[in-house]
Nucleic acid binder design. Structure first.
Length: 439
RNA sequence: GUGGGUGUAGCUCAACUGGCAGAGCACCGGACUGUGGCUCCGGACGUUGUGGGUUCGAUUCCCAUCACCCACCCCA
C-alpha cells in the first residue's frame, strides 16, 4: 500500500498555492491598515486550555479534539495531556496572559494565520486540518476593549478584506447573545418554553433542548420552524448595557455604510462568546456557507485564569475563502519566470549558471536549462512553462559576450550584451497582432 | 457518529447481458545535430482503490474494508 495523506488532510499544490498566498497577502495588508500585528502561537497546547476556554460541553472539545498523552521524560515528571489546537483564540488569550500583554500600551490587536485541527467527518469546505486567518482585539477595559467602536471596526475591516480579495455575494449576519448577567435569565426562559413544545420537535432538537438549548435555533427541519418562531429570543432579554452596546455597534455600521442583516437566531458554538456575534456567509459554498465567524468574548481571559480582558475577534475559514474566490473568475495568474536560459552544447552549464546568477541577483527570475538538451527541447520547454524569452548560451555567445535573446511571443530575436539583459528581460513581451498571423 | 453517491492511465472518461482494459488530453522520443507553437510517426503509461467470495472466466455480480464527494450533526 502506498502512503497517502490522512483522511481530512490534503496537499495544496501549485498553482492553487498562489491563491492561498494572494489571500494571505491581502489579509496582511488590510490588517496592517488597521494596525494589527501578527502573533504565532504553538499548534500544541495543554488540553486544559480548550476545556476551560472553549467549553467542556461544546462539540469541539467533547468529541472533535486530537488529544493525546505526552509521555513523561523522567520519573519526577508527570505525563501531560496535549491537544492539537482546534481554534486559535484560546491560544492567543493564553499568550496574552502568559506574557502580561496588558502591560503594553493600548489595546492588543493581533492576527494569526495557521492550521487548526478538528476530527469531524470531512465534507465540502470542511477538513480535519483546516486553515484559519483570524484577529483579536483584547486588553483591559481602561484601554477601550469593551467599546462598541471595536466591534464595528473589526466588522468594517472584514468588509474591506472581502472587497479587496474580490469575494462577492457575501452577507453579514449579526446578533447579540448577551452576557453573563442577562443570559442565564434567557436560558431559563428558553428552557421553560421548550419544555412545553419539545416533544413535537425533531430528535436533534430534543437532544439540543437538553444539552444546549440555544442550538435549537440552528435547526433546519421545516416542520420545526413554526415552533421555533414561537420561542423567546435573546434580544428580548438583553440587559441595558448589552442593549446599548449593540445599538451603538449598529449605529456605527450604518454611519460607515457597512451593510448587515440582523439575525436573532444566530448563535455560536463556542461557550466564550458574549454580546456581539456575527457570521459572514457566502453564496457559492454549499452547506458550509459560513466563510468566517466571530464575536465578543468578554469573559474568556478570566475563564482561563487571567485578568479581566474583554475582547472581540473572528476566524476566517481560509479553505472556504479560497474556494469562494475560485468559484468566481478571480483566478490568479501564476507567476512565470522572466526568462529561460538555454545552455547549448557541451560544457555550457557553468557559463549558463554564471549568467543565471547575475540575472537573479538583479531580480530577473530565471529557469535554467541543461546543456544536454537540444535547442529544440529548450524552446519547447520554455514554451510549455509559458516563459516569454529564451536566452541562448552557446560557444558563440560566450566568446563574443553577445547573447541571443528570442521573444517567444512575437518570434523576434536579437543579440545583446549582458548589461542590457536585465532591463530587456523584465519588460513584458509585446504581442502585436501582426506576429500572430505568421506560421 | 448517521444517511446517500462515486472509485478504471497524471487528467477527463469509455468498455453491450460476466468474455483479450481502451480513447482524448497531458508526458517522453523521433522526423528537424544553433531555434518553439502546426503536422506526422513512434514510445511509456494500470495489481480496474484494497481484501475476500461466486464463476471455466469478474472492471462488471455479492460481502467486507478504505478513500473521496454530497448531506445530517457541528463549525471556519
Amino acid at each position: 500500500m502506498t502512503i497517502k495523506a490522512v483522511r481530512g488532510t490534503r496537499d495544496l499544490l501549485p498553482p492553487e498555492t498562489e491563491s492561498w498566498n494572494q489571500v494571505e497577502q491581502a489579509a496582511r495588508e488590510v490588517f496592517a491598515l488597521y494596525n494589527f500585528h501578527e502573533i504565532r502561537t504553538p499548534i500544541l497546547e495543554d488540553t486544559q486550555l480548550f476545556a476551560r476556554g472553549v467549553g467542556e460541553a461544546t462539540d469541539i472539545v467533547f468529541k472533535e479534539m486530537y488529544t493525546f498523552e505526552d509521555r513523561a521524560r523522567a520519573q519526577s515528571e508527570k505525563a501531560q495531556s496535549l491537544t492539537l489546537r482546534p481554534e486559535n483564540t484560546a491560544g492567543v488569550v493564553r499568550a496574552y496572559i502568559e506574557h502580561k500583554l496588558w502591560e503594553r500600551p493600548g489595546l492588543q490587536k493581533l492576527y494569526y494565520i495557521g492550521p487548526q485541527f478538528r476530527r469531524e467527518r470531512p465534507q465540502k469546505g470542511r477538513y480535519r486540518q483546516f486553515y484559519q486567518i483570524g484577529a483579536e482585539v483584547i486588553g483591559p477595559p481602561s484601554a477601550g476593549s469593551e467599546s462598541p467602536a471595536r466591534d464595528a471596526e473589526v466588522l468594517q475591516m472584514l468588509v474591506s478584506l472581502l472587497q479587496r480579495a474580490g469575494i462577492k455575494d457575501w452577507n453579514l449576519q449579526l446578533n447579540s447573545v448577551g452576557c453573563a448577567n442577562c443570559r442565564p435569565a434567557y436560558n431559563e426562559a428558553l428552557r421553560q418554553a421548550l419544555a412545553g413544545v419539545v416533544d413535537r420537535m425533531c430528535v436533534d432538537c430534543q437532544r439540543r433542548a437538553q444539552t444546549n438549548p440555544l442550538r435549537v435555533f440552528d435547526c433546519k427541519v421545516p416542520e420545526d420552524q413554526p415552533t421555533i418562531e414561537t420561542l423567546p429570543r435573546i434580544g428580548e432579554f438583553l440587559d441595558e448595557p448589552c442593549r446599548e452596546h449593540f445599538a451603538e455597534v449598529l449605529e456605527i455600521l450604518r454611519a460607515t455604510g457597512t451593510p448587515y442583516t440582523l439575525n436573532d437566531r444566530l448563535v455560536r458554538g463556542l461557550d466564550y462568546y458574549t454580546r456581539t456575534a456575527f457570521e459572514f456567509t457566502q453564496g457559492s459554498l454549499g452547506a458550509q456557507n459560513a466563510i468566517l465567524g466571530g464575536g465578543r468574548y468578554d469573559g474568556l481571559s478570566e475563564a482561563i485564569g487571567g485578568p479581566k480582558a474583554p475582547g472581540i475577534g473572528f476566524a476566517i475559514g481560509e479553505d472556504r475563502f479560497v474556494m469562494a474566490l475560485s468559484a468566481g473568475e478571480a483566478v490568479p495568474s501564476s507567476s512565470v519566470p522572466h526568462a529561460y536560459i538555454a545552455p547549448l552544447g557541451a560544457k555550457m552549464n557553468a557559463a549558463a549558471a554564471q549568467l543565471a546568477r547575475e540575472l537573479r541577483d538583479q531580480n530577473v527570475s530565471v529557469e535554467l536549462g541543461d546543456d544536454s538538451f537540444r535547442l529544440k527541447k529548450s524552446f519547447e520547454t520554455a514554451e510549455k512553462l509559458g516563459i516569454a524569452k529564451v536566452i541562448i548560451v552557446g560557444e558563440n555567445e560566450v566568446a563574443s559576450g553577445q547573447f541571443a535573446v528570442k521573444d517567444l511571443k512575437n518570434g523576434e530575436q536579437k543579440s545583446m550584451g549582458r548589461e542590457q539583459l536585465p532591463e530587456v528581460l523584465r519588460r513584458p513581451a509585446r504581442t502585436s497582432s501582426s506576429s500572430v498571423t505568421e506560421v
